[in-house]
């Protein structure tokens, strides 16, 4: 400390020509900071590179025929393979359950005889409503937005708009269509 100070004093006269040690140190600090910032920016861009802006994934909304195509009291599996949707109709309403287990994303099976959805991966079970009652899953199945298309009266299902039971969203008008 004292040494560098005394040097700073003695070098003060020629400060215009030779940088003082203290000045040099702060330039060094700036240099290192710039270096770190550069690295940080580079790492960030690289990380961002992993997240594409455009996806080529299958479309997530579709027309699912007329309400009368579905039997009351049935879990309809006709869209399961193609769109991962079960259409369930009961006396009150029709709703679209997304066939993806909320545990880790397997596709549960509808076991009509036991009146439940059962996941083959770790055994989560759901009632017909989608509410979970057994196994490791932390929450119920998700419902997709469902509506009657004003153009042709067909059922229109949008998988991208999801309704979560635990957030109280199943009562949303778009989460089901009333059976008339």
């Amino acid at each position: 400390m004292t040494e560098s100070e005394s040097r700073g004093v003695s070098a003060a006269g020629s400060a215009a020509v030779a940088p003082t040690r203290r000045g040099f140190i702060s330039w060094l600090a700036v240099g290192w900071l710039a270096f770190a910032a550069g690295i940080g920016a580079f790492v960030t861009t690289m990380a961002r590179f992993l997240f594409p802006n455009v996806l080529f994934e299958p479309p997530s909304s579709f027309k699912a025929g007329y309400p009368s195509d579905y039997q009351v009291g049935e879990v309809d599996e006709r869209w399961k393979e193609k769109y991962q949707i079960w259409v369930v109709r009961n006396t009150e309403m029709t709703y679209a359950l997304i066939t993806v287990c909320t545990h880790l994303g397997c596709i549960p099976n509808w076991l009509a005889s036991q009146n439940k959805f059962k996941c083959p991966c770790h055994g989560s079970g759901y009632y017909r409503s989608g509410i979970n009652f057994e196994g490791p899953t932390p929450r119920p199945l998700e419902r997709a937005a469902i509506s009657i298309s004003p153009e042709d009266g067909q059922i229109f299902i949008e998988k991208a708009r999801k309704f979560l039971y635990e957030k109280g969203q199943w009562t949303d008008p778009a989460a089901s269509i009333k059976t008339t």
Partner: peptide, 9 residues
């Protein structure tokens, strides 16, 4: 997961 798979599925 999206960063890992480059997609939702």
């Amino acid at each position: 997961r999206f960063g890992l798979l480059g997609g939702r599925i």
